[in-house]
Design a protein around this nucleic acid. Structure first.
Lengths: 75, 75
DNA sequence: CCTCCATGTAAGATATACCTTACATAGAAC
DNA sequence: GTTCTATGTAAGGTATATCTTACATGGAGG
C-alpha cells in the first residue's frame, strides 16, 4: 500500500484484561492463531488481517471499531 | 492463520456504484492503493488488510461492518 | 472505423502477516 | 529454592496482500 503514512492502534491487551480473564494462550487458541501473533499485535508490531480482526472482535465481544482505531494519514 | 475455514464477503463494488460515482481508478487513488488491488478485492480474490479496509470504509462513507461481513468458520 | 475509458486477466516482484521453535524472566505456589 | 504459568524476545520460514507492468475487451462518441 504505497502512499501516505498511517497506522492502527488497538485495545486488545487492555480489553482482554479488563473484560475477560483470558490469557494470551487462550485468546490465541480461540481465534485460531498462535501466541506469538497475539503478542505481536498487542505490542503493535503489526496490525492483524481483517479476518483475524473480526475474530478478535467476536471472541472479545467488542465491536471492531472499539478494538481498533485508524490513526489517519499525515503527509 | 491456521485452523478452521472462513472468509470475508465485501460489498465494495455494489456500494461504490450505488453510493458514489467513483471509478476503480479514482477509488484506488483516494485510498492510496492501485487499481489492481481494488479489482482483486472487489472480485473477492483476497480480503484487504485492516488498514486498507478502514480507508475504504472512510472513503466510501460506510461503516466497516457494512462493507465487510465475516462469514464464520465451519469445521 | 477509430479512439477513449472503464473494467478485466495474468505474471513476477516486494512487503508484511503469521507460524514454528527456542530461550529468557518475573511472580505465585508450594 | 524449585516448579509452574504467563509474558516477552528473536530468528527463520511460509502464506498472502499489494505493486508494477503488460495485454484484452466492450461500450460510448465522434
Amino acid at each position: 500500500m504505497g502512499g501516505k503514512k498511517s497506522y492502527i492502534q488497538n485495545q486488545i491487551k487492555r480489553i482482554r484484561l479488563a473484560r475477560t480473564d483470558l490469557t494470551q494462550v487462550e485468546l490465541a487458541r480461540r481465534v485460531g492463531a498462535t501466541r506469538q501473533t497475539i503478542i505481536s499485535i498487542e505490542a503493535g508490531r503489526y496490525s492483524p488481517s481483517l479476518e483475524l480482526a473480526f475474530r478478535l472482535s467476536h471472541v472479545l465481544g467488542e465491536p471492531l471499531e472499539e478494538l481498533f482505531q485508524f490513526v489517519p494519514e499525515w503527509d
